[in-house]
Amino acid sequence: MTEATQQKIRLVCAHCNTINQFPVTRLDDMPICASCKQPLFNQKPIETDANGLIRHIDNSGVPVLVDFWAPWCGPCQNFAPVFNQFATAVGNQMRLLKVNTETHQQAAMDFNIRSIPTLALFRDGREVARMSGALPLPQLQQWVVEQLTQGN
Rank of each mutant, 00 (worst) to 15 (best):
N51M: 12
G52L: 12
G52T: 11
L53W: 00
I54H: 12
I54A: 13
I57T: 00
I57H: 00
D58W: 02
N59R: 08
S60M: 07
G61A: 07
G61F: 03
G61D: 06
V62P: 01
V62L: 03
V62A: 02
V64K: 00
V64S: 01
V64Q: 01
V66T: 13
D67A: 05
F68A: 09
F68R: 11
F68S: 03
F68G: 06
W69M: 14
P71I: 10
W72L: 10
C73Q: 00
G74A: 10
G74P: 06
G74Y: 02
G74W: 01
C76T: 04
Q77C: 03
N78S: 15
F79R: 04
F79D: 00
F79T: 00
A80K: 13
V82T: 15
V82Y: 02
F83S: 00
F83G: 02
N84P: 00
N84W: 02
Q85F: 00
Q85A: 15
F86W: 05
F86N: 01
A87D: 06
A87T: 05
A87P: 07
T88K: 15
T88N: 10
A89W: 01
A89I: 07
G91Q: 10
N92Y: 01
Q93P: 02
Q93H: 13
Q93M: 05
Q93I: 02
M94R: 05
M94L: 14
R95A: 10
R95N: 12
R95Y: 01
L96Y: 11
L96A: 13
L96I: 09
L96R: 08
L97N: 08
K98D: 02
K98N: 05
N100K: 09
N100H: 06
N100C: 09
T101C: 15
E102I: 03
E102R: 10
E102D: 15
E102Y: 11
E102N: 14
T103L: 15
T103G: 04
T103D: 12
H104Y: 15
H104R: 02
H104S: 08
Q106K: 12
A108V: 04
M109S: 13
D110A: 07
D110P: 02
F111D: 00
N112P: 01
N112W: 04
I113W: 05
I113Q: 02
I113D: 02
R114H: 09
P117L: 11
P117S: 13
T118I: 10
T118M: 12
A120Y: 01
L121M: 08
L121I: 11
L121K: 04
D124I: 03
D124C: 04
G125Q: 07
G125S: 09
R126K: 14
R126Y: 08
R126W: 05
E127K: 14
V128T: 11
A129T: 09
A129M: 12
R130P: 01
M131S: 13
M131K: 14
M131P: 00
M131Y: 09
M131R: 15
M131W: 05
S132H: 09
S132P: 02
S132G: 11
S132Q: 13
S132R: 11
G133M: 09
A134Y: 03
A134V: 08
L135P: 04
L135D: 11
P136G: 07
L137K: 11
P138Y: 10
Q139L: 10
Q141M: 08
W143A: 01
V144K: 06
V144W: 07
V145E: 14
V145M: 10
E146N: 14
E146Q: 15
Q147L: 07
L148H: 06
T149I: 07
T149A: 10
Q150A: 15
Q150K: 15
Q150T: 12
